[in-house]
């Protein structure tokens, strides 16, 4: 959605290297976006900060950081209040969703500036650690499947929503993240199962179309405000994509 897809890698090692480069680029983008967001919050310009939060959140989604793959730093950057004793008031609730919460619940610089500062630091820390993070060979095949499982489980369920209502935008970004991983893996996937990448892509195209159809005046509506007749094509296309994506990890499995 924001940039072109990478060229297919010829080996899993090459795919992992290319993916790491992709994440590094995204984290650089995110660093700049959070710096801007932090400044707006510091200036008490919350009207500017709200769309800037979305920009940053979407960049994070495009990384495709499914299933806690960045550990504690990932939680600090993208954690949720669930499971914390004091919920949204818990000091352990930090990062992008914490800013989303504050920006949609009448909070200002006093509460949010320290959160933004910590977020900026955490992203820097992740960016610094990235070259040394080891990634299992199974990571990318699973990621092909599970980024969009998270869209269904976390975004479209409303579980992630801290007031922004942007589940559709986040899902579109997740879709892009999935396409990036799939593009990197295309040669490897098709080597195991000729034509499978095209088959997956067809389901993703349908999801793209369904997502786009919800837009009004070029803007993403709040997901829960979309009528059922508009939600069904989105969840239907997502479900169909997931059924097909679920086989990608198995292609690379040695289970018997």
């Amino acid at each position: 959605m924001t940039d072109s897809l990478p060229a297919p890698a010829q080996t899993m090692d090459a795919a992992l290297t290319a993916y790491r480069g992709y994440v590094a680029g995204k984290l650089d983008t995110l660093t700049g976006q959070v710096l801007t967001l932090k400044a707006s919050i510091g200036n008490n310009d919350l009207a500017a900060a709200r769309p800037q939060w979305l920009d940053a959140q979407l960049t994070w989604q495009e990384i495709g950081a499914a299933y806690g793959s960045f550990g504690d730093l990932g939680d600090a950057i993208n954690g949720l209040p669930s499971g914390l004793p004091r919920g949204t008031a818990d000091p352990g609730f930090t990062g992008l969703h914490r800013l989303e919460y504050g920006l949609h619940h009448g909070q200002g610089p006093a509460e949010l500036a320290p959160v933004a500062a910590t977020l900026y630091t955490d992203i820097g820390a992740l960016r610094g650690k990235l070259p040394s993070l080891t990634v299992a060979a199974s990571d990318l095949p699973i990621r092909c499947h599970e980024i969009l499982e998270d869209s269904l489980r976390d975004n479209l369920s409303g579980n992630n929503d801290q007031g922004g209502g942007m589940a559709l935008a986040l899902t579109a970004a997740d879709l892009h993240g999935t396409r990036v991983v799939l593009a990197l893996m295309a040669t490897l996937i098709d080597g195991l199962q000729p034509g499978y990448t095209a088959r997956v892509s067809a389901t993703l195209d349908r999801l793209d179309t369904a997502l786009a159809a919800t837009k009004a005046n070029g803007r993403w509506p709040v997901w829960r405000a979309v009528p059922l007749s508009g939600r069904q094509p989105v969840t239907g296309a997502l479900g169909a994509a997931l059924e097909v994506l679920a086989y990608v990890p198995a292609l690379f499995s040695t289970d018997d």
């Binding site: 080996t11 199974s138 195991l192 292609l251 499995s253 040695t254």
Partner: peptide, 22 residues
């Protein structure tokens, strides 16, 4: 689940079907 890196693509004869063997 055990994962392994699949063999390289078309350049390596026979690897594609080996990869599908499981």
């Amino acid at each position: 689940m055990t994962q392994h890196t699949p063999p390289p693509g078309p350049d390596a004869p026979g690897t594609a079907s080996d990869g599908a063997e499981p």
